[in-house]
Design a protein around this nucleic acid. Sequence first.
DNA 1: CGCGTTGACAGTCACGTTTCTGCATGATCG
DNA 2: CGATCATGCAGAAACGTGACTGTCAACGCG
Lengths: 362, 362
Amino acid sequence: MSRAETSRRGSRPGRAGIRDVAAAAGVSITTVSDALNGKGRLPDATRRHVREVADRLGYRPSAAARTLRTGKSGLIGLTVTTYGDEPFTFTEFAYFAEMARAATSAALARGYALVILPATSRHDVWSNVALDGTVVIDPSDHDPVVSELVRQGLPVVSDGRPAGSLPVTAWVDNDHEAAVLGILDHLADAGARRIGLLTGTTTDTYTHLSTTAYLRWCERVGQDPVYEAYPAHDPCAGAVAADRLLARPDRPDAVYGLFDPNGTDLLAAARRYGLRVPEDLLLVCCSESTVYASTEPPITTLSLKPRRIGTAVIQVLIDAIEGLHSDQPVEQVIPTELIVRTSSQRRPPRTTVSPPRSPEGE
Amino acid sequence: MSRAETSRRGSRPGRAGIRDVAAAAGVSITTVSDALNGKGRLPDATRRHVREVADRLGYRPSAAARTLRTGKSGLIGLTVTTYGDEPFTFTEFAYFAEMARAATSAALARGYALVILPATSRHDVWSNVALDGTVVIDPSDHDPVVSELVRQGLPVVSDGRPAGSLPVTAWVDNDHEAAVLGILDHLADAGARRIGLLTGTTTDTYTHLSTTAYLRWCERVGQDPVYEAYPAHDPCAGAVAADRLLARPDRPDAVYGLFDPNGTDLLAAARRYGLRVPEDLLLVCCSESTVYASTEPPITTLSLKPRRIGTAVIQVLIDAIEGLHSDQPVEQVIPTELIVRTSSQRRPPRTTVSPPRSPEGE
DNA sequence: CGCGTTGACAGTCACGTTTCTGCATGATCG
DNA sequence: CGATCATGCAGAAACGTGACTGTCAACGCG
């Protein structure tokens, strides 16, 4: 300890640096770094001694310095596209919540953390955080943020296949067409003669693919399409659209709703029109919420398996970050699950469709 | 351009550094930094010229280097405590989702981003990310992570007043006692004679304060407490507990549920026992979900205003980070809002309590 | 016995930025 | 007209870490 007082010039008290550890242990900075990272060729005695001293000093390596040096921050961006005037709809529906939860867990298990970053945030926020890669949920056609990130060489994996020529590194998605066709067949099997659709006005691929599949199915079986579209980010609009759908002269006897709240909205609308579910109206909606297990009646839902999607997205992204070009394809399809409940099961198939009725008081 | 070829030794192609900008603009590094950050004393011509060149080169400052130099990362940790065996219940209920959404927005508006970090994550993840401060949601009594962060001098603001002697920098919370007392009075005003409570077995302050308030209210009005507790993280347990509560010999004629899914669970249980809502059973639950507006009947809910809480937490935290010791107190109470719907309104107050009935088939 | 080899460490540079200090140049004032 | 001063900008020192290179001793082998 002749003149090893190199620690006094450094940062504020309370934070010990690698120099302090080296001085306290009587070794060099290199030895400390190697001992803690298990890199060099050191005898176990030195390694243990250094680790002990580091623990005693409460040494925590500076994440910023490590990131600057290694070029890896251990941070992954989680981006959701925006709807309407709301800043963003992060976890507006249970899907996003579950997906983000699973993604966070999966990332953490591999030593990464997630940073929430809306696509419309100011550019300086994006460049103020060092990202190793990014997950984008349902990117729009010409998302400028995605292009920018890819241009910078960052891996970008999207939840939902990218629309247009968006240059993502990889994507994970459900087979939405197969899911919709399966639901329509399921409803037809239950006796539905005219199946309606509650869909959205946005241009994301989920809405687009689902609607297209519906229209194709209608054409195949020779049914006139019966659907109402509304801005999916507005909960009030959903209730109104559900009402509109059941008020039509060609009122459907079965409805599939693409969005989470459609189930309760359609149920409420059916009550207003005096329609019994499932006797007069079969109901299915796409949702991850458990409330549909205890509604009256319980409503059949389509689960997109957000936990599996979130996990898969993170695995693919981290593989790309760490250069583990996995033998799996960069396009991964996760199966959906139809949870059949009372609302889509009808014992005696009806042969006639009753005319629409006027709304009744509660 | 005599020998200004300093750019070649640097990083990989595709990322322009501040040196490249300086060389291309024919100025020094200092001038570039000052011009972009608006710091120095430069003529507008130089400033504009430098910015133009930086844009042309697609220059993005390195977040890691900036963080290392300034000591500020612009990152805020968002931590939720864990329940049971699940890794964590992030956004398990609508409250967390809304709160996180508002917090993200508020942070972004001030140039910060949120990093999702469960309290039980491995320590290396925590030290691998440079945080300016942390938000903890409902910290447990002796949260080691909070203590560690505070010891490092990081501001920590909690959503929910800290239990025990947890040394947080500040906290934001509702007045849970006043909220519960208000609901109980509301139910009593609607004619309730025996009010039950559906509560949790966890030791967080929300559950504790609410339950205590209930017990005190019971003592004050001379009612025997009627409550069931269950592990709040388990949705199945909630349905079972709701059933237990309505199966008791001293079955209540009004119930307040502390957790989000209690409304539908209680409604389903009431149907099983042939109880009409609100005629035979008044119902209120604490929830942020909009589904309770369209259930049959619509259920009165207590909103904890998570958007206001999330915003307030972030404002207080960033004020602390930036040293703006605001004149506001470091303990902030956000009022709750009772959204009165059909389930808690009864025209003719009942004078007798009907005996419990057996469950009926659906 | 001399030389190459290997183990065990120390010194030093670079990551890219911010910021402090300092040197010119022109303007201003006594 | 010379000294002072504001202005505009350049140079260089950090920030804390990881990695490369270099040094010194011990040791094996011809």
